[in-house]
């Protein structure tokens, strides 16, 4: 019986935390590989609509991103509340969309240009007029593949 009592009173050895940094580094590397750095700042209000049937875009390097929405935050004082189009890093007027989009297209590697997709990231609050005009502009430079970027979610929330 006495053999059970030998450990009583002695402290547990401290758990070594030496391998904790390794675990955290693994996490870090995982995030570094999965993630892309936000290199561009969205200058407009941008809440995307919900959709259930959306398809994942397979590549990111062959798409031209167009943000549409009302100016955000402090810029409202400068630019007003009318919806704006952001292509690349600047605001673009409607009649210059076509040429700016072409510029973006030609900055792509040549083999990707045929499959270029224009991603329209429009805010839920905007009206169709600006989208229709934009599509017409893009049609004039033969950019016909349009992707309405959405988030996964209940579509009927969009109507409310």
């Amino acid at each position: 019986m006495s053999s059970f009592k030998t450990n009583r009173g002695s402290k547990l050895p401290a758990i070594s935390t030496a391998s904790l940094p390794d675990i955290v580094f693994i996490l870090l590397f995982f995030f570094m590989t999965v993630v892309t750095i936000n290199d561009q700042q969205v200058m407009v209000q941008n809440t995307l609509p919900n959709a259930t049937e959306a398809e994942r875009l397979t590549k990111k390097d062959n798409n031209i991103e167009v943000f549409i929405g009302t100016p955000k935050g402090a810029q409202v004082a400068l630019l007003g509340k009318a919806p704006r189009i952001q292509l690349g890093k600047t605001f673009v007027a409607m009649d210059q969309v076509a040429s700016s989009a072409l510029e973006e297209l030609y900055s792509m590697p040549e083999h990707l240009r045929n499959s270029a997709v224009v991603s329209i990231k429009a805010d839920t609050s905007i009206k169709m007029g600006i989208i229709l005009d934009l599509k017409e502009q893009l049609r004039s430079v033969n950019l016909l593949k349009i992707n309405y970027t959405t988030v996964q979610g209940d579509v009927f929330q969009n109507i409310e």
Binding site: F31, T36, A54, L57, I146
Partner: peptide, 13 residues
């Protein structure tokens, strides 16, 4: 960083 979550409805005009 942001995890790329690009998905949407593809349409051809």
């Amino acid at each position: 960083a942001a995890i790329p979550t690009d998905e949407g409805l593809l349409r051809i005009s």
